[in-house]
Amino acid sequence: MATEQRITDIFTRAGVTGSLHVVPVDDPGDGREVAVAADRQTVIASVFKILLVLEFARQVAAGQLDPTERVLVDAADRLGGWGVAGCADDVEVSLRDLAYFTMSVSDNTAADLLLRRVGADVLPLLAAELELPRTRILGGPRQVMETMLADVGARTEADFARIFPTLPTERIRAMRVLDPERTTSSTAREITRLVGLIWRDEAGPAAACATVRELMSRQLFWTRLAAGFPPGVRVAAKTGTLPGLHAEAGVAEYPDGARYAIAVFARTDGLATRRIDVDLALGEAARTAVEALRST
Rank of each mutant, 00 (worst) to 15 (best):
L167E: 10
L167F: 05
P168G: 06
P168C: 07
T169C: 00
R171V: 06
R171F: 00
R171Y: 02
I172W: 04
A174M: 07
M175A: 05
R176E: 03
R176Y: 00
R176C: 04
V177F: 06
L178V: 06
L178M: 11
L178R: 05
D179G: 02
D179R: 11
D179T: 03
D179F: 04
D179I: 08
R182D: 02
R182C: 00
T183R: 03
S185Q: 11
S185M: 11
S186H: 06
S186W: 03
T187Q: 00
A188V: 07
A188D: 05
A188H: 09
R189S: 03
R189C: 01
R189P: 00
E190H: 03
L194R: 09
V195W: 11
L197E: 01
L197H: 05
L197R: 13
L197G: 00
I198G: 02
E202H: 09
E202K: 15
A203L: 05
A203I: 07
G204H: 13
G204Y: 08
A206N: 08
A206M: 00
A206W: 06
C209W: 09
A210C: 00
T211P: 03
T211V: 14
V212W: 09
R213L: 03
R213E: 03
E214P: 03
L215R: 07
L215K: 04
L215G: 09
M216N: 14
M216H: 09
S217R: 14
S217Y: 06
R218W: 04
R218V: 03
Q219Y: 01
W222G: 12
W222E: 14
T223I: 01
R224W: 01
R224S: 14
L225E: 01
A226C: 09
A227P: 04
G228E: 02
G228W: 04
G228H: 07
F229D: 02
P230W: 04
P230I: 12
P231T: 05
P231W: 07
G232D: 02
G232Y: 11
V233M: 10
R234N: 13
R234P: 00
R234I: 13
A237I: 01
K238L: 02
K238N: 00
T239D: 06
T239V: 14
T239A: 06
G240I: 08
P243R: 02
P243W: 04
G244K: 01
G244Q: 09
G244P: 01
L245S: 06
L245Y: 15
L245V: 15
H246N: 03
H246S: 12
E248S: 04
E248Q: 15
A249K: 11
A249V: 15
G250A: 08
G250I: 14
V251S: 08
A252C: 08
A252G: 13
A252P: 00
E253L: 07
Y254N: 12
Y254P: 09
Y254C: 09
P255R: 13
D256S: 02
D256N: 14
G257Q: 10
A258N: 15
R259F: 15
A261G: 15
A261I: 14
A261M: 14
A263N: 05
A263Y: 08
